[in-house]
């Protein structure tokens, strides 16, 4: 059980992140959930790549244990993507707040439905 503790944490983060995205109505909280969800994936990549005591793969007689650099690089890219997503999501939340006066999903849906009914009439 303890051998797999990193995976357990990964799965816990993944599920709780996804739960927050679905269950919360506040646009900012949703983004926080999304961020947690994405972070869990970073862990999933990094954990198997890291060896205890391993270093970057530098050819040198002092080191014999290396961590796999590829997942690290991939996740660096993924983090950049995650940051961009977060920035865009927050920017949208700001714009929504300006346009609707609220960042609660229920309120926005209510306003949208009202607008729709006004159009069809």
């Amino acid at each position: 059980m303890l051998d797999h503790f990193s995976y357990i944490i990964t799965v816990f983060l993944m599920v709780s992140g996804l739960y927050i995205v679905m269950a919360r109505g506040n646009l900012i909280k949703k983004l926080i959930g999304l961020s947690i969800f994405q972070t869990s994936v970073y862990l999933l990549y990094i954990v198997p790549a890291k060896l205890v005591g391993g270093t970057a793969p530098i050819i040198s007689p002092q080191f014999s244990v290396y961590s796999n650099p590829l997942p690290h690089v991939l996740i660096l890219t993924a983090i950049v993507v995650g940051v961009a997503t977060m920035a865009l999501g927050l920017a949208l939340a700001v714009r929504i707040r300006e346009a609707y006066g609220s960042i609660e999903e229920d309120e926005i849906t209510r306003l949208d439905n009202a607008a729709e009914q006004a159009e069809t009439r």
Binding site: Q38, A78, T85, I96
Partner: peptide, 22 residues
């Protein structure tokens, strides 16, 4: 203004989808 909420919703759904893909 519904474009904003549509975009936000797509962002959430799309990011979940993309994360699943990763």
């Amino acid at each position: 203004r519904r474009a904003l909420s549509a975009s936000y919703r797509y962002l959430i759904m799309g990011s979940i989808g993309a994360t699943f893909i990763v």
